[in-house]
Design a protein around this nucleic acid. Structure first.
Lengths: 344, 344
DNA sequence: CTGAAAGCGCTAACAA
DNA sequence: TTGTTAGCGCTTTCAG
């Protein structure tokens, strides 16, 4: 069962391949009678475009590549869903890649996407510095938008949230709940999310006079396990424990609350805990997490818009990248979702 | 910045495009000296294959398409990870599609994958019957393997677990824990997972003399919300409540245990609860879930193997599909993971 | 061992 | 309105 080509349809309909192409891609004038004939022949033969051939000819694949640090992190999967949805409206497809939080794999993925002639790339870089070269190199060849995280030393469009502002809200809320000291649990400072969130945390803590013991800053990775470990360390440490534990994401916070429960530490009575991202499971912890909601749909929409704009500019303006103006940095404002892990 | 083509490399190296192709694709004999020259030229120009052109020429994309009902279900994301990993070893890429549990979207996705000339398709059909036509039609054109779920009336390869055997283990375990009656919470019986699991549940319950009140079979969808709702309904129903609640997946079970906690129903003291899939979050519930672990890596490996075999058969044996023998049905044996939501 | 040339399936000038 | 033709970038006979 060979695939049906446009030539076979043309023969069956008694017209030229050009006409078939015009009918099926809906471009160019064709008389209604011929249109019907062609369509019928195509249907009968079960014709389906060969989008590889079309892509080669048009040098456009109508596909956008997306690279995320980890597909098993619910935050990224929901971001992927939002992006896919936003692309769907433009009739574009998404080619998804998982970098496994490894800049090398990430670089390979990016190269693959370039080789596959995707029309643009959306990437949430795994590493705050090591991801730089590959991201920049890719951006030199294709429209590229960084999402959520970004990497230093690159000049590309970026869409994400204002982590500093978010942390301000978190700290103010904890302060109102009576927190006088706080701990921070995040990942190693090798990605912009943690960096920014930590910076925001530290800055606002200072403003509010909230104490941050140097031993109360624990950096590991974005996982439930790390949250549990970190909480255990805080419990075991000398000196007074913190009134609040601010986590760089919900997975960590879920681990922290779990460990607190296991050790009989009351949340939020004894210690308040906050997460970040508002993943679906954040309300399932015990107690349900107070967290920061990122406007994923908006983020995705903006990213898709920027990509489309870049693609348009690239087509018109001669040699692509260089033609565009300075890169856009769009920071959306996240909102605090208060649940039961903090004191209202 | 135009993309570098093989022709430019050829010119720079002072050889023909054929030679460049031979060097870069590693096929055909080329003298070492020329090889070096070509490679250097390619590096300097920053050449990268155009896999679209290559795919058109070879009619092979080295890409496998995968369609899952929902990318936000952690079970499927981990299955995706396993598949991607298994494919990576064969130098193949994964094109992932989310069907949003909608057979129509699913059909479109499948058609797109065919149009894109993927080398094969792995699909976990959204619906037990409505997914049929599209899956069968796709399977007539391309190597296709159904994963985890399958759809009636199709003859394609399938890899999954033996749900009946799994449920036997679950029921035996609950029985040992003293269960005399049980409820089942699943999705509407429109996919094979729920069907099989329910069948296994019912059959073993009968064998063991465990009572199943007709009102204690609740069907909704695979979500935490539905689990909560179902638990509330069970609590509100007349008559004696069940000793055990068997859930068709972990999300539902998470919802059920959450609702039990909210209503002050002791798990597993008052009622035992089981999940299915062993997603990462299953151990985070309160209490941690007893569940069924699916051997995802094995499932993924088998699927990839079947796909490769089908592709090989298709190439050799004239007209693809029809040439192959009867389809393979591989049911792996899952294992029970006992945690705290049941009585040991 | 290397080069010339055909062609994968499609679309877009250009002609008719 | 329709057909003819060239060519996207690559690989692969077939000659040399």
């Amino acid at each position: 069962m060979q695939r049906v080509t446009i030539a076979q349809v043309a023969e069956a309909a008694g017209v030229s391949t050009a006409t078939v192409s015009r009918v099926l891609s809906g471009r160019g004038p064709v008389s209604p009678g011929v249109q019907r004939k062609v369509r019928r022949a195509a249907d009968e033969l079960g014709y389906q475009v060969n989008s590889i051939a079309r892509a080669l000819r048009n040098s456009r694949t109508d596909t956008v590549g997306m690279v995320v640090p980890s597909i098993s992190n619910p935050f990224f999967t929901s971001l992927v869903e939002s992006v896919e949805h936003a692309l769907g409206r433009d009739g574009k497809e998404l080619f998804l890649c998982d970098a496994r939080s490894d800049p090398e794999i990430e670089a390979r993925r990016l190269a693959t996407l370039v080789a596959r002639n995707v029309d643009g790339i959306i990437v949430s870089p795994s590493h705050g510095t090591l991801s730089g070269p590959a991201v920049q190199e890719t951006a030199d060849r294709l429209p590229l938008v960084q999402l959520d995280r970004f990497v230093g030393g690159t000049s590309t469009d970026w869409v994400g949230v204002d982590d500093i502002a978010a942390m301000r809200q978190v700290m103010d809320h904890l302060h109102e709940g009576g927190a006088r000291s706080a701990a921070f649990v995040g990942s190693l400072l090798t990605n912009s999310s943690t960096e920014q969130r930590f910076a925001g945390f530290r800055r606002r803590a200072e403003d509010l006079g909230i104490t941050v013991d140097p031993g109360h800053v624990l950096l590991g990775d974005y996982s439930v396990d790390w949250g549990e470990t970190a909480a255990a360390r805080l419990a075991a440490a000398d000196g007074p424990p913190p009134d609040a534990i601010v986590c760089a994401d919900d997975l960590i916070a879920l681990g922290v609350t779990r460990a607190c429960r296991a050790h009989g530490v009351d949340v939020p009575g004894r210690v308040q805990v906050t997460g970040y991202d508002n993943i679906e499971f954040s309300r399932l912890g015990e107690p349900a997490l107070t967290t920061v909601d990122q406007p994923r749909d908006r983020i995705a929409e903006e990213a898709v818009r920027l990509l489309a704009a870049a693609a348009a500019a690239g087509e018109g303006g001669g040699d692509g990248r260089a033609a565009r103006g300075p890169s856009a940095h769009i920071a959306l404002v996240p909102s605090l979702v208060v649940r039961e892990s903090t004191r209202a």
